[in-house]
């Protein structure tokens, strides 16, 4: 690749790294508007991270090095995943056939260490959270990879950058409904993987009902900052995938940014208008999303 392109992609990564915490600000502002509150500042997430980075730490006597290594690994996985992500009209820093498999792998590694670090505390609540995370993500994984199979079939490209640019610039004729189904399936995965309503409620204060938050209960200081920042990067990454599937991402920086903002507002609306599902119903949601992606795949099969 040329130096200019590399610089441009690196610039995209830096921009994403800076902008990721803003998403949660937009979501929270939307929810505040719906509830008639003024809400926290847009930049609250940045303040939180900076404050946490400046603190010391307290560790439970039960924990081992796994607990301390977890946040660092989670952050590294999320950061590396940015290198695989095409943003705007910029191709990803690293693009090769099958790079989305690596993306899924990195996110899975991140989850693995989130769960093991949670189990390291010996707390029953954290164990419960890890158990739920394991169950729901196991169901989300096939939906994610099947949705990407649909995109691969539609575009004939096997890398995220290739898919994004073809979806934006040369979409297959009459692929609208299929793309909509795929994007919907990806959106459900996005909600589930990022612990949003209707799968998990980021605002809950009851340990028994949490999934993601409960796994970080014992982390504090810089460790918690790493975890929170990694989660925000993950929100950004999955969001970009949804936006790209809609063909918005590859159209240029502003379309991409606008798509992300719209997505954040959409999450805010979802969280303001929906209640979270009972935990027993979550598998149904995931299987429903799987059905959507399979339906999309079947539709691409019959398309002449």
């Amino acid at each position: 690749m040329e130096t200019g392109l590399i610089l441009s992609s690196a610039g995209g990564i830096a921009g994403a790294a800076l902008a990721a915490p803003l998403l949660s600000g937009v979501i929270n502002r939307t929810k505040a508007v719906f509830a008639g509150r003024r809400g926290q500042p847009l930049l609250q997430a940045y303040h939180d991270i900076i404050k946490l980075l400046g603190k010391g730490a307290v560790y439970s006597r039960t924990t081992t090095w796994v607990f301390r290594a977890g946040p660092v690994i989670q952050f590294s996985c999320a950061a590396l995943a940015l290198a695989l992500l095409p943003m705007g009209s910029r191709p990803a820093l690293l693009a090769f056939p099958g790079d989305f498999i690596c993306l899924a792998g990195l996110l899975a590694l991140m989850r693995f260490f989130l769960m093991t670090a949670a189990l390291d505390t010996g707390s029953s609540f954290e164990g419960m959270g890890a158990s739920r995370e394991a169950a729901f993500s196991a169901l989300a994984e096939p939906v994610f990879l099947l949705s990407l199979a649909v995109l691969a079939r539609l575009t004939g490209a096997l890398s995220l950058s290739g898919m994004a640019s073809r979806l934006a610039l040369h979409p297959a004729e009459g692929s609208g409904p299929v793309l909509a189904l795929t994007a919907l399936a990806l959106f459900v995965v996005f909600l589930a993987e990022n612990a949003r309503v209707p799968v998990d409620d980021p605002n809950t204060h009851l340990e028994l009902t949490m999934i993601h938050e409960v796994m970080a209960l014992d982390h504090g200081g810089p460790d918690l900052a790493f975890i929170q920042y990694a989660a925000q990067l993950k929100l950004w990454i999955m969001g970009i995938l949804v936006v790209n599937a809609l063909g918005l991402g590859g159209r240029g920086g502003w379309a991409c940014a606008g798509g992300m903002a719209a997505l954040a507002v959409l999450i805010g609306i979802v969280e303001s208008t929906m209640a979270r599902l009972r935990l027993l119903r979550v598998p149904q949601l995931m299987i429903g999303a799987g059905a959507l992606s399979l339906l999309a795949l079947l539709l691409t099969l019959v398309r002449p």
Partner: peptide, 17 residues
């Protein structure tokens, strides 16, 4: 179960195709 029903539904769809 409802989960299995959705699975059956998708299989029926594939079968109809």
């Amino acid at each position: 179960g409802s989960e299995f029903s959705i699975f059956v539904g998708i299989s029926l769809l594939a079968f109809s195709f």
